[in-house]
Amino acid sequence: MKIITETPRLIIREFNLDDAQAVYDFNEPVEVNRYTGDAGMCTSLADARNIITDIWLKEYAEHGFARWAVVYKETNQVIGFCGFKQETRFDGVDIGYRLHPDYWGKGIATEANQACIDYAKAHMPLDEVFGDVIPENLGSVNVLKKLGLTYLTNYYEDGLKVDRYRISLNDI
């Protein structure tokens, strides 16, 4: 289990198959995937294992990074994901997160992804990172802004407006 970085409250590490129950648990609440386009993709432990194996572990091997597990130190539980993915839709790197609702509104998404940005500046050959968000998802819009991403453009996908934000890792 490769640890990427830590914050006072969190351990950011690579996922492994032992995390399947946690992946299911943080994806299960309907409100978690309300704005993601991933609703219905993780409805069983088998789905969670497939996400870990077919997406994250594959991307770790292919790109050297993918979404990372967010472990809450106080409980040693995986409560969500954070970090980067190579986005083939626009040939860039996307930053994102997903947390169980019990951990919303506590600054964890900002804390976890700021740690990822700091890690990327020190250890990854990235010039810029993008963040896509449905404008109605005000919590995520605020997280992107707190991280220093600025509005770039918008596009429509599956009939929904998506705002794209960007941060240059060379300017900060």
Rank of each mutant, 00 (worst) to 15 (best):
M1R: 02
I4G: 12
T5C: 12
P8D: 08
R9E: 13
L10R: 03
L10M: 08
L10P: 03
I12W: 00
I12Y: 00
R13G: 11
E14Q: 15
N16C: 15
L17E: 14
L17K: 08
D18V: 06
D19W: 00
Q21V: 06
Q21K: 14
A22T: 01
A22Y: 01
V23L: 10
F26S: 01
V32K: 10
N33S: 15
R34H: 10
T36M: 14
D38T: 12
A39W: 10
C42G: 03
C42S: 04
S44K: 05
L45W: 01
R49Q: 12
N50D: 11
D54A: 10
I55D: 08
I55V: 06
W56L: 14
E62W: 00
G64D: 11
G64V: 12
A66N: 06
R67I: 01
V71E: 15
Y72E: 11
E74N: 09
E74H: 05
N76F: 10
Q77E: 15
I79P: 03
I79A: 11
F81C: 15
G83A: 11
K85F: 13
Q86A: 12
T88W: 00
T88C: 01
R89H: 13
D91Q: 14
G92H: 07
V93G: 01
D94M: 04
Y97P: 11
D102T: 03
Y103E: 06
Y103V: 01
K106G: 01
E111H: 10
N113E: 02
N113I: 03
Q114P: 06
Q114F: 09
Q114R: 15
A115H: 00
Y119I: 07
A120S: 14
A120E: 05
A120D: 06
K121I: 07
A122E: 14
P125M: 02
L126Q: 04
L126D: 05
D132F: 05
V133W: 05
P135M: 13
P135G: 08
L149V: 06
L152Q: 06
L152F: 03
T153F: 02
T153S: 09
Y156P: 00
G159S: 03
G159Y: 02
D163W: 15
R164L: 08
Y165G: 12
R166P: 00
L169W: 09
D171N: 15
